[in-house]
Computed example of a mutant assay.
Amino acid sequence: MNLTTKLCVSALALSFATEAAATEWNVSVWGKRRAFTEHIHKLAELVEEKTDGAFTMNISYGGLSKNRENLDGISIGAFEMAQFCAGYHPDKNRAITVLELPFLGVQTLDEEVAVSHAVYDHPAVADEMAQWNAMMLMTSPMPQYNIVGTGEARSELSEFDGMRVRATGGIGQAFEAVGAVPTSVTSSEAYQAMESGVVDTVAFAQHAHLSFGTINEADWWTANLNPGTVNCPVVVNIDAYDMLSDEERAALDESVPEAIDYYLSNYGELLKRWDEVLAEKDVQKVEISDEELAKFKDVAGQPIHDAWIADMSAQGLPAQELYDLVQATLAEQRGN
């Protein structure tokens, strides 16, 4: 073998070794790229930078799994990372549904991040996620949900009676408590449900009303109903995480706070221009009176909290502890 041939063989072997050492993760999300997924894109960018391209992520919008099946996909190793919402399958992620209780008192996205990550770090959550071979990585913080609707605006609690609303988790329970009829169609199905008249109203955070087009069907939007929000973690497959090199694992873990900060900044810009969006689309901004809000909280706040604590405790979860953790974290966050 001459020198040129030896050099070519060596270069080829080095190329194969480099390719073999590279790590590529598949990430399952849904819908389209939007404020709700920007932290995942930022995370992928940061990880690739910190590992000089040795660790990359392929983010797929619906190509790997349906949104209600992402946790199942993680459990069998169909992909390495995924986003899901607790309300899509509360029986599979009971512990974190504490974060979807209505009227918890969370007021800002920073508070939502704090309470979510505090709950994610609780051993009961880790144990439950481990049953799906999943590990919590970060939250996808969303502001309080509000509803868009068609027809005459509804500003009094009595007008919610019989109202068909797309709402999941604790928000759905809250509306049910005041006589509304919740349906848990996925976010991707919400526009069609509204357009076809299957629902009268849709409860979403602002970015979702934009991304899924429900704002385009709306005649009005509640500015201050704020019944709660949905909790949507990003999880990783435990086996895939354990197989990362020390450098790759450090790059991933250290990038989470940066990715969350980027998300908060990006979402903040969306919130700043929300009133402009309403004006552009000729959507009426409805303010619910303090009296009506107080009625809503009385019916759908503490009674639902107490029922959740009793139900989850009966199932063997440290429900009171998780609930108290949320309240303590909120108090600490505001103290800081």
Rank of each mutant, 00 (worst) to 15 (best):
N2R: 07
N2T: 11
L3G: 03
T5E: 11
T5M: 06
T5S: 10
C8P: 00
S10N: 11
L12N: 09
L12Y: 14
A13H: 07
E19L: 15
A21R: 14
E24W: 07
N26Y: 10
G31M: 06
R34E: 13
F36Q: 12
T37N: 04
T37L: 04
H39S: 09
H41D: 15
L43Y: 00
E45D: 15
L46K: 09
V47S: 09
E48N: 07
E49T: 09
D52A: 14
N58P: 03
I59H: 02
L64G: 00
L64M: 06
N67I: 08
I74D: 03
I74G: 01
G77N: 09
A78N: 15
F79T: 13
E80P: 13
Q83I: 07
Q83F: 12
A86M: 05
G87Y: 01
K92W: 12
N93D: 10
N93T: 11
T97Q: 13
P102K: 06
F103T: 08
F103E: 10
V106H: 05
D110P: 08
V113A: 02
S116L: 00
H117L: 06
A118C: 03
V119H: 05
P123R: 04
E128M: 03
N133P: 02
M136T: 12
M138H: 02
S140D: 06
P143L: 05
I147K: 08
I147A: 10
T150H: 08
G151E: 11
A153N: 00
R154Y: 02
E156N: 03
D161K: 14
G162D: 01
A167T: 04
A177C: 08
P182C: 01
P182A: 00
S184G: 00
T186G: 12
E189K: 07
Y191C: 02
Y191L: 04
A193S: 08
M194E: 00
V199P: 04
A205H: 03
A205S: 06
Q206S: 12
H207S: 14
A208S: 11
L210R: 04
L210H: 02
L210E: 06
N216G: 03
N216T: 06
T222A: 08
A223W: 08
A223H: 04
N224D: 06
L225Y: 06
T229I: 09
N231I: 07
N231F: 12
N237V: 14
N237D: 14
A240D: 01
D242L: 14
D242T: 13
L244K: 11
E248V: 05
D253R: 12
D253M: 14
S255M: 10
V256A: 13
A259P: 02
Y262N: 12
L264T: 03
N266L: 15
Y267R: 03
G268Y: 14
L270G: 03
L271N: 13
K272Q: 15
R273Q: 06
W274R: 09
W274C: 01
D275H: 10
V277K: 05
E280M: 12
E280C: 11
E280L: 13
K281C: 12
K281I: 04
V283G: 05
Q284S: 02
K285T: 05
S289I: 09
S289M: 05
A300Q: 05
G301S: 02
P303C: 00
I304Y: 11
A307D: 13
A307S: 13
W308Q: 09
D311I: 06
D311E: 15
M312I: 12
S313L: 12
L317Y: 15
P318K: 03
P318L: 07
A319E: 11
Q320P: 11
L322W: 11
D324T: 09
A331V: 14
A331P: 02
G335R: 15
